[in-house]
Each structure stands twice: as structure tokens, then as C-alpha cells.
Write a protein that binds this DNA or RNA. Structure first.
Lengths: 156, 156
DNA sequence: GCTCGTTAAGTCGCGCACGACTGAATCGTG
DNA sequence: CACGATTCAGTCGTGCGCGACTTAACGAGC
């Protein structure tokens, strides 16, 4: 069995496409003073404000070691505010400041500005998104399942 | 115009799917002592050995500031060897060592091991790869075009 | 109430990515 | 030949991602 050439590997196409998209977003996000992951965090908060770090991590599939420093930078930039929950002192609630909430209007124009140059029509984008989501959940389940099988092997 | 929810954004699906794939590759690549970008560099070299840093960068869409430290680590690990070209002292040729070439056999088993758990069949993977490649080239052209248009505007 | 296991946020180290820059080699044009 | 522009590899600083770890708070069972 031989190695597939780079151009035939789905994993490489995915890796490259993801970087191409963030590269295309970059100049637009620079105008807002945001990085791409910071933009995704704000997307999550615009959709539902006041989530805990844990809940944001679940939505974005990132853990606290990535989110904590990122949120600290967003707080320094005056876009979010963090405070410990009164009912559970372990959790921290992340809330948009007026400034952070105000960016929503400007940010909502971004996808449309990129849509016209991505070489795909709306149907293709929709299908692509669905396929990618299916791929992600399948791989996540396979990764989780690995651990469960290993744990199960210990009992058997 | 309102902001799309996170789950409807193609950019987010791409970002998440890309990380899910590398996460799934990680335990397998750990056995080979490789990171995911290092694996991609080796894929490129297995396909055609003796390329310059510049040529590798074109194939992987990475520039020297990413590749130089990565190649240095591969050289320290004894997988590649670097040497200045005699006919052009600016360029550096990257060659696989016997050890680096030998990893090819073990690495060729990787895609098949992941294929059975990605939740997609071969036709879907093929279509996905083609769509992603089209997306990447379109976005790259748009990004390049931006600069050319700006430069053109100065002449006009 | 106390202990032990669990959970949440955060820190640290490492390896990318990428922009900005440096230094050396090469090329083009006069 | 000279000299300015270009090309190539490499360094540096910043911000992710992520594994391993720490600390504090919660919860269950005794």
C-alpha cells in the first residue's frame, strides 16, 4: 500500500481550506481589532450572552487552556466582562460589554462580503457545511469511543 | 441583517472539522513521533524528494517562517537532511534520510485506519476534497487579486 | 462534619501560523 | 563592471490549540 499524494488527501484539503478561510477573514477582522478565534467566541456570545467558560468551550470545542487567555485578551480590549457565578464559585460567566455587543452590527456584514468570492453557490456551501459537521461529529464520537473501549477492556 | 448562529457558519464548520481531523490523527502520529504539519511535510517529500524550502512552501501553502523551524526539528529527529544548493546558494534542498524514507510504509496505513470511522463513504470524501480544493483556490485568488487591484488602482 | 472523588478555571510548555524583519545571494539594467 | 531590486532562508514576536498540571469549589457517602 502506497502513500497517497498530498493533493488526494482529504485531511490536507481540510487543513488548507481552513487556513485559506481564516486568511481571507483576517484583513476584515483587522478592521475590528479581532483575531479569527476571538471572532468565533463573539459569534457564540452574540447568539447567547452570559455563558460560562465551560459552555463556550462546548460550543466551540475548545477547552479552558485555550479560552482563558483568549477571554482575558477580549476583556483587556473591553469587549467582554468576566465574573464568578454566585451559585457556583467554580464557574465564570462571560458577558458582552456594550462595546462588545456593538460590534455585532459591523461583524454581521462579514460573511456576505466573503460570499461573493468563495467560488461556491449557496447550495454548495450548505452541503459543504452539513458534510463537515457530519465528519466532525463522527470523528469526535470515534475519539471518545476509543477511551470508552480502552476503559471497557480493563473491566472485561 | 443579523449575525448567523455559529452552527450555520461554514467557516466555523471548517475550523472545527479541521481540528477534529488533526485530533484524530494525533494518537496515531504520536506512535511515529510526528506532529500533523510534520506529517504533511513528509507526505510532500515522499511524493517527491529533494525539494527546496520554497517548493515545499508552495505545495503546502506555508512560508519559510513556519517551515524553517519545523524542518529544523525534523532534521534534529533524523528524518531529513538540509543542504544549500550549489547552483543557487540562496536555496536549501531538503532530502529524506533513510530513517525518514522508512517511515513511509508505516505512515501509509494511517488514512485507511481513519477511513472507517469518519462517517463518510468514499464518494462523499472525494466530493468533499474537490469542493474544499475549489474553495481554497477561489479564496487564494481573491486574496491575491485584492493586492493586484489595489496596485492597479494606483496606476489608474 | 469530614474525606474523597469530581468539576471548573486557570497556568505552563511546546509547536505551529503568520506578519515584519534581516542578511546573503542573485538578477537586471545601465 | 556597478548597483539597485528581487529572491530565498531564516529569526523574532504574538496568538492560538492542546496536553499536563494546579488550585479552588462542589458533591456524595460515611
Amino acid at each position: 500500500m502506497d502513500v497517497l499524494p498530498l493533493d488526494r488527501q482529504v485531511c490536507f484539503a481540510l487543513y488548507t481550506a481552513s487556513r485559506a478561510v481564516t486568511a481571507r477573514y483576517r484583513p476584515l477582522l483587522d478592521e475590528l481589532g479581532l483575531t479569527y478565534p476571538q471572532y468565533l467566541v463573539l459569534l457564540a456570545l452574540w447568539e447567547r450572552d452570559g455563558r460560562t467558560v465551560k459552555e463556550l468551550g462546548t460550543a466551540l470545542r475548545l477547552d479552558s487552556s485555550t479560552l482563558s487567555p483568549l477571554l482575558k485578551r477580549l476583556e483587556t480590549a473591553g469587549l467582554v466582562h468576566r465574573e464568578r457565578r454566585a451559585d457556583d464559585e467554580r464557574s465564570v460567566t462571560v458577558r458582552l460589554t456594550p462595546h462588545g455587543a456593538g460590534l455585532r452590527t459591523r461583524a454581521s456584514a462579514l460573511p456576505a462580503r466573503l460570499l461573493c468570492e468563495d467560488g461556491l453557490d449557496l447550495d454548495e456551501l450548505n452541503e459543504l457545511r452539513i458534510t463537515l459537521t457530519r465528519l466532525t461529529t463522527a470523528l469526535d464520537m470515534a475519539l471518545d469511543g476509543r477511551g470508552e473501549i480502552d476503559a471497557g477492556a480493563l473491566h472485561g
